[in-house]
C-alpha cells in the first residue's frame, strides 16, 4: 500500500460516505468529488488535525450554472496534494470560513466574496479585494451570467440590454 492509498483509507475509515467519492488521480494527487457543506466541514477538520495537511495553496472557484464549486488544494509535510471540492447552491451560497485553521486563506476567501458572491461566515469585514473601490454591490464578474460588455466602467453600473423590446421590433 503506497502513501496515497494510506491517506485515502484513513479518510474513508473515518467518513464512510466518502468511499465512492474520493479517488487517486495520479501519483501524489488525491481528489474528491463535490461535497456538501456539512460534509466538507467535518472532513476539513479531520484533514487538518489528524492528517497534517497544514497548508492551503489555492482556492479555485467555478460556476456550473446552478451551483458554485469551490476547490481547495491542501499540502502538508509530504509532497502529496489533497484536493477537496465543495458545492453550494447559487441561490444560497453560504460557506463557513476556515481561517481559524488556515490563517492565510483570508485573501482567497475575499476573492470568492468579490468575484463569485459567496457569503463567508466568520470572515472579518474588510475592503474590496481584488475589485476596485466603489464597485457596485451585486455584481460578481466571474459568474457565468455576468457579461463584462454590459458593464459601464465610467458610471460603474451594470445594465442588461432589454431583449424583449428587440424581439417586438423584429
Amino acid at each position: 500500500m503506497n502513501r496515497e492509498e494510506a491517506i485515502v483509507n484513513s479518510i474513508c475509515g473515518r467518513f464512510p460516505f466518502l468511499a465512492d467519492r474520493i479517488y487517486i488521480q495520479k501519483d501524489k494527487r488525491i481528489f474528491t468529488k463535490s461535497l456538501l457543506r456539512e460534509e466538507f466541514e467535518q472532513v476539513i477538520a479531520y484533514v487538518h488535525d489528524e492528517l497534517n495537511f497544514t497548508r492551503v495553496s489555492h482556492v479555485v472557484g467555478t460556476d456550473d450554472g446552478e451551483n458554485l464549486g469551490l476547490l481547495y488544494i491542501f499540502s502538508g509535510s509530504e509532497d502529496i496534494l489533497l484536493i477537496l471540492r465543495e458545492s453550494v447552491p447559487k441561490s444560497n451560497p453560504v460557506i463557513k470560513s476556515i481561517s481559524d485553521m488556515y490563517p492565510s486563506i483570508v485573501l482567497h476567501e475575499r476573492e470568492l466574496v468579490d468575484l463569485f458572491g459567496v457569503v463567508v461566515e466568520g470572515l472579518p469585514e474588510g475592503p474590496h479585494y481584488p475589485l476596485p473601490d466603489g464597485w457596485p454591490e451585486g455584481n460578481y464578474p466571474m459568474r457565468k451570467e455576468w457579461n463584462p460588455k454590459h458593464f459601464n466602467k465610467d458610471t460603474m453600473t451594470y445594465e442588461e440590454p432589454q431583449e424583449k423590446e428587440v424581439q417586438k421590433n423584429e
Binding site: 476596485p132 464578474p141 455576468w146 463584462p148 460588455k149 458593464f151 466602467k153
Partner: peptide, 13 residues
C-alpha cells in the same frame, strides 16, 4: 499601448 490581452476585462479601461 492598447490594453493588450486585458482589453475589455471587467476592471480595465
Amino acid at each position: 499601448c492598447t490594453g493588450g490581452i486585458f482589453e475589455d476585462c471587467y476592471c480595465v479601461t
